[in-house]
């Protein structure tokens, strides 16, 4: 690895200043489980400063308010998320992804904020965070702003984050009555793998009908893909097999995958259908139990 420097700011302002002054040569780091691998693979030749986000209080926040919802600091590691009873109860969909990113050791470091900023097409946490209506809270040299998560990733490993900006936290609105969510991916192994395709979804039920739904896909486009049309099409329909079939077909049609070592175009589109049906069924079951 080429020489890098390391800084560990203790406030958002300090971090923003460091990143801003460094221009493009600085890179924020939370758990480091992606950035260190990329540095070693010479994928970030211009980066010469890592700014550690883990010692900034706001990035470690984890606040669950029944009215306001969940505020999740961008650097909170996965294991703290699935170890939190309140989150487990209110956001089982977040637990789904937090408990399958990497393995036990990776989950000791990796964060959902980092997974989002890494902006891999396969990012496991992103579809369900989009489905849950999550919002990114960003601080930068010219102030703070909020971005809906479906707009956050702009390309392969590219995001809306501008020079000097950092992702401070993620915000999820409090779940409403009869809401359920799920993340499901397909991997060849049972753990420690990259999604061949993934589906995150959230549904709200109303007397056996789908009141509203949000579905997002991973690994089938340059960015995680929010498929708004699915929610629009199945809203008002009964939560039955026919509706799930419709959703699956729409996911298959919306997916724009490539063929690579992890799967073919045809197979990935097929998976979008299968996984959307299966994932929505789990979300529906959870909604019924909620």
């Amino acid at each position: 690895m080429h020489w890098i420097d390391y800084a560990s700011p203790h406030s958002v302002r300090e971090a923003v200043d460091l990143l801003n002054e460094a221009g493009g040569s600085a890179r924020p780091m939370a758990g480091g489980t992606d950035v260190l691998v990329q540095l070693r693979a010479n994928a970030l030749p211009d980066v010469n400063l890592l700014v550690d986000m883990k010692n900034i209080p706001e990035l470690n926040e984890m606040t669950m308010d029944p009215e306001v919802g969940l505020t999740l600091g961008a650097a909170v590691p996965c294991y703290k998320i699935y170890g939190n009873k309140a989150i487990e109860h209110a956001f089982p969909g977040l637990i789904d992804c937090a408990s399958l990113i990497g393995g036990t050791q990776i989950q000791g470091r990796a964060s959902l904020g980092g997974n989002l900023c890494n902006a891999a097409p396969s990012g496991d946490s992103i579809p369900v965070m989009i489905a849950l209506g999550g919002v990114a809270r960003i601080s930068g040299p010219s102030g703070d702003r909020e971005v809906p998560l479906e707009d956050f990733c702009t390309g392969v490993r590219r995001t809306v984050i501008q020079q000097g900006e950092i992702l401070v936290s993620l915000h999820f609105p409090a779940p409403v009555a009869n809401q359920g969510a799920n993340y499901m991916r397909f991997i060849p192994r049972n753990e420690m793998d990259i999604a061949v395709a993934g589906v995150g979804c959230s549904v709200v039920l109303d007397n056996g009908n789908i009141k509203s739904a949000r579905v997002a896909l991973s690994s089938v486009a340059p960015t995680p893909l929010y498929v708004k049309e699915i929610g629009d099409a199945i809203a008002g329909k009964p939560a039955n097999e026919e509706t799930l079939k419709l959703a699956g077909q729409m996911a298959k049609d919306a997916a724009k995958p490539i063929t690579d070592m992890r799967g073919t175009i045809e197979y990935r589109k097929h998976l979008c259908d299968v996984l959307t049906r299966r994932s929505l069924q789990i979300a529906i079951d959870r909604a019924k139990e909620s």
Binding site: G31, G32, Q105, G108, R109
Partner: peptide
Amino acid sequence: NDGNCGACTVSMDGRIVTACLVLGVEAE
């Protein structure tokens, strides 16, 4: 050296991590 084999597993502040994905300076 990329977190996928676990041979470098150590415990840090009570939580297991792969030491290849932690910088030495982070151990402060």
